[in-house]
Amino acid sequence: MTQSSLREQALVIGGRGGIGKAVAKHWCEDPRFSAVWEVSRHAPKDDSKFGRRRSLTTDHSEEDIGEVCREVLAESSRLSRVVISLGTLHGVDYGPEKSLDALRQAAMEEVYRVNCVLPMLWLSALAPGLRKNPDCRIAVMSARVGSINDNGLGGWYSYRSAKAALNMGLKSASIELARRAKGVKLIAFHPGTVDTALSEPFQRSVPEGKLFTADFVAERLTGVLDEHKADGQISYLDWAGKSIPW
Results as ranks from 00 to 15, higher is better:
4 S>Q: 13
6 L>Q: 12
8 E>C: 11
15 G>Q: 09
17 G>M: 08
18 G>Y: 01
18 G>V: 03
19 I>G: 03
19 I>R: 00
26 H>Y: 15
44 P>Y: 07
45 K>G: 14
47 D>L: 14
52 R>L: 02
53 R>T: 09
60 H>N: 15
60 H>P: 01
63 E>P: 06
64 D>H: 15
66 G>I: 04
69 C>T: 14
71 E>K: 15
74 A>S: 12
75 E>R: 02
75 E>W: 04
76 S>H: 10
84 I>N: 04
86 L>N: 04
87 G>T: 00
88 T>H: 03
92 V>D: 15
95 G>S: 13
96 P>S: 05
99 S>Q: 01
100 L>P: 02
101 D>E: 15
104 R>I: 08
107 A>D: 15
109 E>G: 01
116 C>H: 11
117 V>S: 04
117 V>E: 10
118 L>T: 07
123 L>Q: 09
123 L>S: 03
126 L>R: 10
127 A>M: 10
127 A>F: 06
132 K>C: 12
133 N>Y: 07
137 R>V: 00
140 V>C: 09
143 A>D: 02
145 V>G: 01
148 I>R: 03
150 D>T: 02
153 L>E: 05
153 L>Y: 03
153 L>F: 09
165 A>N: 01
167 N>A: 01
169 G>E: 06
170 L>N: 01
180 R>M: 10
180 R>E: 15
183 G>V: 11
184 V>T: 11
184 V>C: 11
188 A>W: 06
188 A>Y: 10
189 F>A: 11
193 T>W: 05
196 T>C: 04
196 T>S: 05
197 A>T: 05
199 S>P: 06
202 F>P: 01
205 S>N: 14
208 E>H: 13
211 L>S: 03
211 L>N: 08
214 A>D: 03
215 D>R: 06
218 A>Q: 07
223 G>H: 07
228 H>E: 06
229 K>P: 07
236 Y>L: 14
237 L>Q: 11
239 W>L: 05
241 G>P: 10
245 P>D: 14
